[in-house]
Design a protein around this nucleic acid. Structure first.
Lengths: 142, 142
DNA sequence: CGCAATTAAATTGTGTACAATCGAATTGTA
DNA sequence: TACAATTCGATTGTACACAATTTAATTGCG
């Protein structure tokens, strides 16, 4: 009747350190993002938009693995802050086009120093970070 | 005036794949956890409790990197489902002792098959999973 | 063409996360 | 021993996440 519950131990899960690590690092971003008045999710959304200039909600969702239930309220907040505009596409009104404003572009200049600050306090060296990146991409099927 | 915003590209972040990967894997747990009526956070909480039999809210928080703002409502739900009991410690009333009930213990038998099911659909081989685990632990300062 | 199927966002409801604050119990020290 | 400081959990408020449903626009097929 003695059963082994070893597989159920928290230390034997890969998912838990992934989940914990993700949240811990997002916490480390917070003081830097507070200076810009952005949350982490808003920050990665702006990253996609800074890179492309504009994108539909659908494209943002595919890139960030987020759905409209998360993005719609988040984008409305970014709009009310003046960082982006939201407008239906002329050619297909189902699509909502998100565009970075001048004010949103200005925020980019403040954001550009953040990756360096974060890299400096990482516990991994460059090779380890690269390997971690590779494994995560593989896990995501990329 | 030409500036490099390369560091701000989503592909150049370590945090984003970590965050995306964590959420994608938690989604893969969902159909299995639905059968037990547990959310992912409730599942890892039960994992700690199954292992120890009982723990204070503080101990759970340290182990799971969660605070009372998250744990208090979650534990009340687990209590109302009959999986755990919540009782103040006799020796120090500030501590709330969480104990697994017989019903909570029964859930463990259903949960024990989950890690195997999850491992089988992973895209990483055993060596890669071990290396990923090591890097995440190092990142967490463990 | 007409209309069913599909698509894109928005909405609704539940459940985390987490910062900040509060209140009760305990501890350390003058 | 008073009492300030600390500790633990609960509460409040904001912001995601995400499943499920709804609404409006577009597409494709008979």
């Amino acid at each position: 009747m003695e059963e082994s519950y070893d597989a159920l131990r928290l230390e034997n899960q890969l998912c838990f350190p992934l989940y914990a690590c993700s949240r811990e690092i997002i916490k480390q971003y917070k003081p830097h993002l507070d200076e810009l008045g952005l949350t982490y999710t808003q920050y990665i959304t702006m990253m996609v938009l800074w890179e492309k200039g504009e994108a539909t909600v659908k494209e943002l969702g595919e890139r960030l693995y987020l759905d409209s239930g998360t993005l719609t309220p988040l984008l409305k907040k970014l709009e009310s802050r003046g960082c982006i505009t939201r407008a239906r596409s002329k050619t297909d009104e189902r699509n909502l086009m998100i565009t970075v404003t001048r004010e949103g572009e200005a925020l980019r200049e403040q954001a550009v120093s953040i990756p360096g600050k974060m890299a400096r306090c990482s516990r991994l060296n460059e090779a380890e970070a690269a390997e971690l990146y590779r494994l995560l991409q593989k896990m995501l099927g990329k």
